[in-house]
Amino acid sequence: MDIYPIVFHFFAALVTISALGVVLMPSPIYSALCLALTMLFLSGLFFILDAQFLAAVQLMVYAGAVVVLFVMVLMLFDLRNENQPFSGNWRVNLSKLGVIALGFILIALPCTYLMKASNSEWLQSRGLETKKLAELLFSKHIFAFEVVGALLTVVLIGAIALAKAKGGTHARTE
């Protein structure tokens, strides 16, 4: 009896429920909390895929930084009176959902084929070490790494330039 199926189905169900919560919750602050839960359970899935480093980074960057940023900006706005969370009328939304469902079926059908074709021995085998990831990151992908560093600097300056104004968020417009 191995533990992977139980853990996978547990985390998969929780990820799906909390992701649905992000989309369906009428209040954005509950959406943000559901997003934090989604990131938490996804890092659990990364753990069973033997990607421990990425699971830790997922927790730190997403649950720790990105979601906190979302919550902070939501607190900055005063969004008490959100009376219509979903856009358009129900007919437009239904047609959007129909198109998305069609696309989902087209992609999900090969997945069910994959389920039958492949076996589960790959999960039991020894996974990649974090050392391997570090070696690749600083040898083969060093250029992309440096470019991402430059991009983050640009984003830092850009975000300050975009959000900066005299008087903060509630500046009076004359």
Binding site: A19, V23, P28, P85, C111, S118, S120
Partner: peptide, 30 residues
């Protein structure tokens, strides 16, 4: 029996939920 297909199907479901959110919500933050 957990295969690669299970993970890809879950990834599909998650992507679809995200896309529904982008198309039907009004709030930019959501």
């Amino acid at each position: 029996n957990i295969t690669l297909g299970h993970f890809i199907l879950l990834s599909c479901v998650l992507f679809t939920i995200g896309m529904v959110g982008v198309l039907v919500r009004r709030n930019v933050i959501v």
